[in-house]
Amino acid sequence: MISSRRQTHRWLMTALAVLLPWLAVSALLQRPEIPPVTSTAAPLFARSDLGAAEGEGDLLVAFDWPVQGTRLKGQLVLGETLQLSLIAEQPLNLADPLLYWSSTAGTTESLAQAQLLGSLAGAGTHRYRLPVVALRALRSPQPGLLLLVSPLDQRIVASWELPPFSVGGKRS
């Protein structure tokens, strides 16, 4: 290398020797104990136009949903929209699990009419915005089901029947 390139290289590496260890150690120290939802989730929300759920509003329902030996703690929150949050204590033993809402029975045939809420991959908190039709269904005697689906074989792994509620009331 010519002298000026050597000098550039020396200063570039010195700068990287400060910047990169700082970035690496910060990224490791600040990572949450429970891994965040994988990056697969965000595109799913965006694709389904269900993104930007914030989980603010009145708590309507809190429930526990045992699935595959772990427990999904769920909350339905009514704010400007109806939002569902699910906290997975452990990652599900399932490749790329997807969460659907269905107004009818949880059969494979009904999956075609079910609405995709998003990915349930990884442990931690997952938030979804439920479609308006789900809000209407929740106020009816048939509030519908949450379906946990394996996309590999389009199999319904587990389902959870949502309890009906009346506006203003809380159930648990």
């Binding site: 970035l23 690496a24 990224a27 490791l28 990572r31 891994p35 965040p36 994988t38 990056s39 990884g122």
Partner: peptide, 8 residues
């Protein structure tokens, strides 16, 4: 560091 090592 901000990708694979956050989940793994």
């Amino acid at each position: 560091f901000l990708g694979a090592l956050q989940t793994n």
